[in-house]
Design a protein around this nucleic acid. Sequence first.
RNA 1: GUGGUUGUAGCUCAGUUGGUUAGAGCAUUGGUUUGUGGUACCAAGGGUCGCGGGUUCGAAUCCCGUCUUCCACCCCA
Length: 456
Amino acid sequence: MAQKPSIPKGTRDFTPEQVAKRNYIFNTIQTQFELYGFQPIETPSFENSDTLMGKYGEEGDRLIFKILNSGDYLNKVDDKLYQTKNSNAITSKISEKALRYDLTVPFARYVVQHQNEIEFPFKRYQMQPVWRADRPQKGRFREFYQCDADVVGSTSLWQEVEFVQLYDAVFKALKLEGVTIKINNRKILSGIAEVIGASDKLIDFTVALDKLDKIGEQKVKEEMLEKGISQEGIDKLKPLFTLSGDFNSQVEQLKGILNSSEEGKKGIEELEFIDKAISELGLQTVNLQLDVTLARGLNYYTGAIYEVSAPENVQMGSIGGGGRYDDLTGIFGMKNVSGVGISFGLDRIYLVLEELNLFPEAVAKNIDLLFINFGETEALFCLKAIKQLRLNNINSELYPDAAKMKKQMNHANKRNIPFVVLVGGEEMKSDSYTLKNMVSGEQEKVSLQDVIAKFK
RNA sequence: GUGGUUGUAGCUCAGUUGGUUAGAGCAUUGGUUUGUGGUACCAAGGGUCGCGGGUUCGAAUCCCGUCUUCCACCCCA
């Protein structure tokens, strides 16, 4: 064999079976998106670099795949700059396009660009691949799909409520039990930072707080100190680390901490609104949980923040996330358009369903009938029958070669084809078809009409 | 981006302190069986030991580089 070909790190090929399973998830999510009134859009796989750069923080910028300019791209770089070997500065000269990193920022660009054609509030969904130059691990790829639903042009908290319901509906439809939706509010985080006198260190503060369940209270405090948050401020956080009880009692404890922060109080109000509505409406399968340490996607979220955790018995990072962003379109020059949205991580949901064995049997489309090929004249006779079957929407095909019976039967087994049809000289004479059940081994001689009636 | 881990036949894996021609199971192909598969038996094909250097009389085995896999950071779906 020649040199084996390969695919880049963090990318995958999908077998027919895998594609069928992935489509099952896509279709399930899509069905719910449409039930909730979202409409599909698509955007290009790559954007102008300045559309993406600077929107995801420093870390994000590093993970964006840049596309080299065409032609003699080094020609544009002046010698002085080239000599500095400053990668960031040179990159902007030799790369003007980049692969999309998520679906939210391209969507914001879309909204601004099409603002005069869009009827607001605009509810769109989008299921497309995104690319990140991350170091791969299990459930972490360089090319993966996101399924996003967002509403722009409405500040109503009913949207937040509906997104919780939408999550619930999708996981119910996927029969995935034990999913937890963690919810928090950026305003609460800002409020706490304000109370402890660390408003200017909001990101450092929340990044450290986010690690609480992973590294523990002591380490979190150390990290905060290290980032320049005062000991006095950290002491004020004490009630935060011991927050306990259900949604309502946690909220009550939070109120104690936040009573001097207007923004923090607003955040609590919003959370209470969502929780009250959800309690009234009820959830089918997911569990809604307040988590004040949740601090994802802070780069643009301004209100509610969601994160979706897989069932506890599966080791997998978050399988979805989302939140409210009041000014995402602002970075593209369109002010005062609030948006809120959620995302499903298709590839991770796939891994979870696979691990829990939750894919329905027969997600793969298969043919019902394989006609055994006995030779030229028989093949033509079979194709006439197959033509009729197909006109009746019955999936069927002829084995292309007059190979040995054993080989053809084996082929049917390997492909899990439930029935084979044998047509030789005898059958042709009497215009009949020997239909063999590949599971039971039983066979019977029937007419074409019988076959159609059986499989239609 | 930092530190570690992995790679032997299509697949899952053996391969001793460096030592002749690198093995097994499954899968594939052919046969026992020229219109009846899954079982059984017989036989065959298939490997630059991830790739590239180095050490050595001699490397799958030791060293370096590189790619890939998975893991912990980082970050995230």
